[in-house]
Computed example of a mutant assay.
Amino acid sequence: MQRFVAPAVLAVAVVLGGCQASTPTAPAPVHGYVTDMKAFDAFIATHPTPDQFRAAYPDVQLVLPGTVTTLEFRMNNSRYYPELDKDGRITGGRFS
């Protein structure tokens, strides 16, 4: 019986170690306005939630439906108007 304990513990450690490596990590926040459009488009392609968007791009104003904003025109990619799917995930959008 004791000779099966060590292999069983080793097997459990390998399985748990594999699970830990497969957990997704949140992307590092991008401070400032969007300048790397390729990285931004790749992020939007993951269909993030509004909360995930705010965590990834904290300095970009996310204008959701029903949000009141000012009318000034911005050319620095600092305000994003998303297109949402039925689950509220961002599927595309535009800067203004």
Rank of each mutant, 00 (worst) to 15 (best):
F4V: 05
P65I: 09
K38A: 15
D51S: 06
R74K: 13
T49H: 10
P24L: 11
D41H: 11
A13S: 04
G66Y: 06
D41S: 11
Y81H: 14
D51F: 01
Y80R: 02
F43G: 02
T49R: 11
G92K: 04
R94G: 08
T23A: 14
G17K: 10
L71W: 03
N77A: 09
M37T: 14
R94T: 10
D87I: 00
M1A: 10
M1S: 12
T91Y: 01
R79V: 00
Q20Y: 12
P24F: 15
P7F: 09
S96A: 04
T49I: 07
A56Y: 14
K38T: 15
V9E: 02
D51V: 01
P29I: 00
L64V: 08
M75A: 11
V68N: 13
E83N: 02
L16E: 01
P48A: 13
Y80P: 04
V9P: 00
P48H: 14
V12C: 05
A39E: 12
L16Q: 01
P65E: 08
P65A: 10
A42W: 08
G32M: 09
R89P: 03
P82M: 03
A39W: 07
A55V: 04
K86Q: 07
L10H: 00
G32H: 11
R74E: 10
T69Q: 14
K86S: 06
A45P: 03
S22T: 14
S78K: 07
F73D: 09
S78C: 15
T70D: 15
L71M: 03
T69A: 12
T49N: 11
S22H: 11
T69M: 10
L71S: 06
C19Q: 07
P65M: 10
S96K: 04
P27T: 08
A8I: 05
R3T: 15
A11L: 11
V15Y: 12
F95Q: 08
L62Y: 04
T91L: 00
T69I: 15
R79E: 01
V60Q: 11
Q61S: 08
Q20S: 08
M37Y: 14
R54E: 10
V14Y: 05
P82A: 03
T35G: 09
R74I: 08
L84I: 01
V34Y: 10
Y33C: 04
P48R: 13
S22A: 14
G17L: 07
L16I: 02
D85L: 07
R89E: 01
R3C: 06
F43R: 02
G32N: 12
T25Q: 14
L62G: 01
Q2T: 12
L62H: 03
T23Y: 11
E72Q: 15
M37K: 13
V60D: 13
I90D: 06
M37N: 11
E72S: 12
T23L: 15
V30M: 04
T69D: 13
P29A: 06
L62N: 01
F40L: 09
A21M: 10
V34L: 09
V9Q: 03
C19R: 05
A13R: 02
P27G: 07
D85A: 09
Y33V: 06
I44V: 15
G88R: 06
A21Q: 13
Q52M: 08
V9Y: 03
L10F: 09
A56V: 07
P82F: 02
V14R: 02
P29N: 04
I90V: 02
V34Q: 14
